[in-house]
């Protein structure tokens, strides 16, 4: 039984990394948001499975919070924001897909290289989980680096946060109060970011970071 439990946990955590790769080359914003919802869904499954095999019932709450907020509420809200901003038809140039994939693969290799030797004393499940979680975090950061659109930045940030939750669930879970407060802080971050997106658009007629930089260019010094 332990073998199967481990394999499924491994599969789900690895699935998150794969979905993170999917995020990297989504050109359309709706597709990006949908893939993010999938990302969160896989996280929910992974955390739920951890709750089952660790018999840590508070992790079910974590999974529930992730399901409601990250898989349903936030994607829906982002959909609405994108539609209200009228940018659902814009394409975002991501750069060479192959190159991005290669960089992502290098990041995953780095995460495994770092995590596996450090955690030799921990149990196998936690080790794998931590390595995958670090990979998801690095991929999320990489997503934030390569994207211009503010909404994509938000997605990158949220997927990074998913990686953190995965790490916490693998390492026997955080205290529940911490998880709830993190979930709420992410939600509030979304609200603040949403408000700012509209404010930015009002001011600059765009949510493209490069366009904004060109404004600032003129005011420098």
């Amino acid at each position: 039984m332990h073998g199967l439990a481990f394999d499924i946990a491994h599969l789900l955590a690895g699935g998150m990394v794969v979905v993170s790769f999917l995020l990297l080359y989504q050109v359309r914003l709706f597709a990006l948001i949908n893939v993010f919802a999938l990302h969160s869904l896989v996280l929910v499954l992974a955390v739920g499975w951890q709750a089952t095999i660790q018999e840590a019932h508070h992790l079910y709450v974590t999974a529930g919070i992730a399901l409601i907020f990250k898989a349903i509420l936030i994607p829906t809200a982002l959909h609405r924001i994108v539609r209200r901003l009228g940018i659902h038809r814009t394409l975002e140039v991501v750069g060479g897909v192959g190159l991005n994939m290669l960089a992502g693969a290098a990041l995953v290799a780095l995460a495994i290289l770092v995590m596996l030797p450090v955690t030799t004393t921990a149990d196998v499940l936690a080790r794998e989980d931590l390595a995958f979680a670090l990979a998801v975090v690095l991929l999320g950061l990489w997503l934030m680096v390569i994207r211009h659109n503010a909404v994509s930045l938000v997605i990158g940030f949220m997927s990074l946060e998913n990686g953190l939750v995965l790490a916490a669930a693998g390492a026997r879970g955080m205290p529940l109060a911490v998880e709830i407060s993190i979930a709420f802080s992410v939600l509030i971050a979304l609200i603040v970011i949403g408000v700012f997106l509209f404010r930015i658009r009002e001011r600059f007629d765009s949510v493209d970071m490069q366009a904004m930089d060109s404004f600032r260019e003129g005011r420098r010094r």
């Binding site: 995460a111 290289l113 770092v114 690095l138 950061l141 680096v145 970071m209 930089d213």
Partner: peptide, 22 residues
């Protein structure tokens, strides 16, 4: 710097530190 440059700096620093650790 632009926000992407800052993010790249953070990202680069993190990767370099992790590489060093590895």
């Amino acid at each position: 710097l632009t926000i992407r440059h800052y993010l790249s700096l953070v990202f680069g620093a993190l990767v370099i530190l992790l590489l060093g650790m590895a």
